[in-house]
Amino acid sequence: MDIGLFTIIIFDGLNYAATLFLISIGLTLVYGVLRILNISHGGIYGLGAYMATWLTILLLNKGLPPYLSYFMLLVGAVIIGLITGPSIERLCLRRIYGSDIHIQLLMTFSILLILEDAMKLIWGVEPWFMSEPYILLGQFSVGQIVYPRYTFLLIGVSASFGVFLVWLVRGTRFGKLVVSVIQDREVSVAMGINVGLIYTVAFTMGALSAALGGAFIAPTISVAPGFAAEVVVMSFAVIAIGGLGNLEGAVLGSLIVGLARALAIHTFPELELAVIYLIMLLVLAFLPQGLFGAVEERRI
């Protein structure tokens, strides 16, 4: 492999890893706190992408300075996160805590179906393009390789959101409450912790992560319906490799999956998805709890 291709794979890999991390950290946080795999995560991602694109186009059409578009991406993500998060948690998930796993999976799956069509009904089925934030930052070159600077922004947003979540869980009073709710829900209620509120906030953080992922990847792709399932499957691979519910595991998981995907796309594009699952299966075959997951006792 020549050095040029190698550099491209590394950059592409980091690019994918940053996006994947931004999305999966929310999925793993929700699983960690609520013990529910939120399949509708992919739908929230899609909504985030559409909202951000729509707001930015609105802004550009008004003739406002294009540098504000970064702010609009953020605003779009926050709007979607704050609408979908609490409403899904309060209206649907709240009724099925403690139900069988298959009921929880089916419920979040049906929410995914609803969100998929909600996107089409609001923004139509034609793809949307909005690449200003991507183009504005220009490009840089390493050797003969020219690469967009937007990648750094993506990595920056992803890393700061990750640090923010880790700080929230590890460094604040809220985080301590979350940990106690994870440890023992009933005792937490008895101690006067508002468990319902903790769940809502944790789920909203998860939704925000998906929406941010969608919003900041939107300038680099054409936003069209139909990718929600792929997103949730990929981020599941990430968090399964890292260990379900483990925040640090998501970092390593997304790096592994991101680099593997870049390698596959540049060498065997047909195998793109297959490679990711091969890695995931290999990891799970030897470490069923993922790389960082705690060993779970068997259900009796």
Partner: peptide
């Protein structure tokens, strides 16, 4: 709204 219909009915059943 085909998937919306499916999802809505599924939610109702669950």
């Amino acid at each position: 709204a085909w998937q919306l219909t499916l999802g809505g009915i599924m939610l109702f059943i669950i």
